[in-house]
């Protein structure tokens, strides 16, 4: 259980759901954790869980839409741990629920989804990748969705944002080729999380993956190079279970 021993990981949106599960999985594999989220109480609770898993943790209350907060997240992580090896852009905004059709979508809410899901990951990745290039290694994992490639009624802004995040990931990947810094977009699949319940309250949890299972794919991707820029978490887990 030491695939990430001594590696410094920064996880956004870490107070619940997939972000929390990824932070805990990384902690169990020996990583040092910087976690951020908007809600201080929930973030502190996850920080306590990470600490209980035996990992050093820095909890930073931050709103990734705010450029001062992006600088805080990066500077505090670098001050605390001197480097950043892994960045997981997980913080995501679903948009208003119940999910409205595009024809009914509140324009400001559309902007907000793009801010959180596209602009913030760009800004944070830029600041972190600059440092990763200086240290000549690092891995960035962007949390994508099948909504990035398929249209679903009501998922308009989210779909656009994740498609844009995939596009961002593809360009980064081309530009970072050969630098030692790699970047991936991962579709985690449908999970039993608060976000999924907000989007599809009628879904049967039995059909949904647990975020703890999916987090193992993130451990694998963070610890070993993978040829694909965009991939489904499920594909990594299947490979692992066959071994």
């Amino acid at each position: 259980m030491s695939a990430l021993r001594g590696r410094v990981a920064l996880v956004t949106g870490a107070s619940r759901g997939l972000g929390r599960a990824v932070a805990l999985a990384f902690a169990r594999e020996g990583a040092l954790l910087a976690i951020c989220a908007r809600g201080a109480a929930a973030l502190e609770a996850v920080a306590a869980e990470v600490r209980a898993a035996g990992a050093a943790v820095l909890a930073i209350q931050a709103d990734v839409r705010n450029s001062r907060d992006i600088e805080r997240v990066v500077a505090l992580t670098l001050e605390g741990f001197q480097r950043i090896d892994i960045l997981v852009n997980n913080a995501s905004e679903l948009g208003p629920t119940p999910l409205p059709y595009l024809v009914d979508y509140p324009p400001d809410a559309f902007d907000d989804v793009l801010q959180v899901n596209v602009v913030a990951p760009f800004r944070l990745s830029q600041a972190v990748i600059r440092s990763m290039l200086t240290q000549r290694e690092g891995v960035v994992i962007n949390v994508s969705s099948d909504a990035a490639v398929t249209g679903y009624p009501g998922w308009g802004a989210y779909s656009v944002s994740k498609a844009a995040l995939d596009g961002l990931t593809r360009t980064w990947a081309e530009e970072l080729e050969g630098t030692g810094v790699r970047i991936h977009a991962v579709d985690p699949g449908d999970m039993d999380t608060a976000m999924h319940r907000a989007a599809e309250p009628e879904a049967d949890p039995i059909d949904l993956a647990r975020p703890e299972e999916v987090a193992e794919a993130f451990v694998r991707l963070a610890s070993e190079p993978h040829p694909a820029t965009r991939l489904e978490a499920r594909s990594l887990l299947e490979v692992r279970s066959r071994v």
Binding site: Q82, S131, T134
Partner: peptide, 10 residues
Amino acid sequence: EYYQTVYATH
């Protein structure tokens, strides 16, 4: 951010 070099770290 405009005061940061592209390799700014510590």
